[in-house]
Simulated scan of single mutants.
Amino acid sequence: MLWLLKSRERKAVFAMMKEAKRRGVEIDELKNVMTPEEFVALLPPEKPKFKGKVPDVTRWGLPPDNEVSTKQYWTDEEVLAVQESTARGEWTGAAALLASTWGDWDRRNLVTGALGEAAATDDGWLRAWREARPGDPGAALVNAESLVHVAWEVRSGLQAKHVTEEQFAAFFRVLAQAEEAVHEASELAPADPTPWVTALAIAMGQQAENDQYLEVWAELTERDPQHRGAHTRALQYWCAKWFGSNEKMWEFAETAAAKSPKLAPLLLIAAHESEFQDVSAWRDPRVAGALDGIVAWLDGEGRDHPSTRSDRAYAAKALVENGRFDEAVEQFRHLGTRADAGIWAYSGDARGEFLATRYAACFGATKP
């Protein structure tokens, strides 16, 4: 009866049948061995839902739809070079790059994340680094971050009801090892806030109570009160879908935004989280009032900040929702073909969300 299904549904069923065969399981068992993200990846792209005549975005100097991709991009040439060298088993480039980030804590956090992810896949180069330079704080830092990645790979991204007791036990065991590694990294470089950013991820995975989380937060902010990566992680802890509420999330975002322009985009993230709790927030005065400053920061001092590309995606959405279409188009010019920001993926159709928001921006914008 497949012929009764719509074309997209038929393609999805065939894709699932093929995947089940590849994995050697029945199609009904796929839900137990695949993450939600893997399921979404099986679906053919859905035509974006956009009310109105779809504009030709190329008239505004934007790349055509068929060039837009959700593939994760790394635009940092130094990070790309180190990823290539670690894939060959070399560690000296990674060590030099991480050492060069000392004092630029936001960039150090970015590089640590990239190296930790690489080591979680193959840690031969990291082990060689630690053997060659015992007590190197950079190697200890990457080790801690890589263990967090390993822990989540062990647990998998499945809903808790589909995670086995053995997986949970291994998950918490590896997180405990990561916690020990964080303390080692911090002892080797006491002034470095970066181990405490990793500690925030560990505390969240361990389902830490608010008081416990605040202890980690205090260690972080003592070293860098305006650390962007840490604030982004903490916002998730205090949002309703994790261990907080809309009220706690907004209070945290407002307090952060008052500290520094680079933290103001947290208000946009809070608005997006609120929308997914069915609370309208894009036109909230806290968001609308912050947009001028956020756009100015993105085009000025924050142009090369590690979070800028993600922030531009949030800004594009907020500008569209507030009727500032020409400015939204400008943000999409910066984003180009890249639909890899987290904001687009929430609906399960990242490319579709990107395109629909881009259509809306061009539809309402001044004629090119």
Rank of each mutant, 00 (worst) to 15 (best):
S7I: 00
A15W: 11
A20R: 08
K21R: 10
V25H: 00
D28Q: 02
D28W: 04
L30G: 03
E37F: 04
L42Q: 05
P44R: 11
K47S: 12
P48D: 03
K53V: 14
V57D: 13
T58G: 15
L62F: 11
T70C: 13
Y73V: 09
W74Q: 05
D76K: 10
L80Q: 08
T92N: 12
A95E: 00
D104N: 08
D123S: 09
G124L: 02
G124R: 05
A139G: 05
A144V: 03
E145V: 04
R155P: 08
Q159E: 07
K161G: 06
K161R: 00
V163G: 01
T164H: 03
E165T: 06
F168S: 07
F171Y: 02
R173D: 07
V174Y: 00
E184N: 00
S186Q: 09
S186P: 14
P193M: 08
P193L: 14
P195L: 12
A201I: 03
Q207K: 12
N210R: 10
L220H: 04
Q226M: 07
A230R: 03
K241Q: 07
W250N: 14
A257N: 01
A264F: 11
L268K: 09
S274L: 11
S280H: 06
A281K: 03
W282N: 05
P285L: 05
A288P: 01
G293W: 09
I294M: 12
I294V: 15
L298A: 04
G300E: 06
S307N: 09
A315H: 11
D326M: 04
Q331K: 08
G342E: 07
W344V: 01
A345M: 04
G348T: 14
D349K: 11
D349V: 04
L355R: 11
T357L: 07
